[in-house]
Design a protein around this nucleic acid. Structure first.
Lengths: 125, 125
DNA sequence: CCTAGTGTACTATGTAACTAATACACCAAT
DNA sequence: ATTGGTGTATTAGTTACATAGTACACTAGG
């Protein structure tokens, strides 16, 4: 499974985002072992050094814990999941509002645009 | 006025975004002359080449028109403004929805989050 | 003990993006 | 014609990123 990566963002960061998403969605459980840097590198079709950078970034955030000789594990702290989701959600919404106001939209227009987009998507099913 | 730029995105692109925003908001009128590459460079505290890249990108989009020896001007086509706003708005909303669904949120939760954020901001005033 | 698998560290290389500095080409006004 | 202001082109330097290769440290299991 050789994935595709966007060129606008570093690969190591995109992989980190994916892991966090999977954790927040419950697809990765607290304390679960992640693939080794070498194995994850093969899965993702990148260099092991890139994965190490990914794990290092996640460890700096406190999301994973690396144990030499054993592997890299998702954090045991279950409250981290809700906290992560809350923080990420806040950042996403804040950036969205800022972008929309940047093109001159008022609050009611912003809310309306979201509703319309979701309704339209529903119709496309 | 030496502005601050994010490191995650090229400066020339951030300046281009700002110009488009000003145009969409009506702060820059169709056909209006923009500052020269050198003057804009001084205003923004960057190299003239960075501004040239900004103008080049905008010209490629058809938003501005550069005339050698005269200057760079906003497009005369007034319909470009609405088209730009519509396109940008669609991209912003689409990216927002994708991000929110990425952390496992359903459509109703997404709409609710936007409403809550706007209500909270209103209270902060 | 020994081996395999793990994370970690280090150097080197290549590439691309961004920024910078400089020189050149054009236009308008004097 | 000259001058000043304009866009344009070329070249170079810096940085971040990704890759490659190698070596080391630790752990678990046989």
């Amino acid at each position: 499974m050789t994935e595709e990566f966007k060129t606008s963002k570093p690969i190591y960061s995109q992989i980190a985002d994916r892991i966090i998403q999977q954790f927040v969605r419950g697809e990765i459980r607290p304390g679960e072992k992640l693939p080794s840097v070498r194995e994850m590198a093969i899965q993702s079709g990148v260099n092991p050094n890139t994965i190490q950078r990914t794990y290092g970034e996640l460890e700096r955030m406190g999301v994973v814990e690396s144990r030499r000789g054993q592997g890299t594990f998702m954090t045991e702290q279950i409250e981290m999941r809700n906290q992560l989701r809350a923080d990420i959600q806040r950042d996403i919404v804040a950036a969205f509002i800022e972008n929309m106001r940047g093109i001159g939209l008022e609050d009611r227009e912003i809310a309306y645009a979201v509703e319309q987009f979701l309704v339209k998507r529903e119709e496309d099913k």
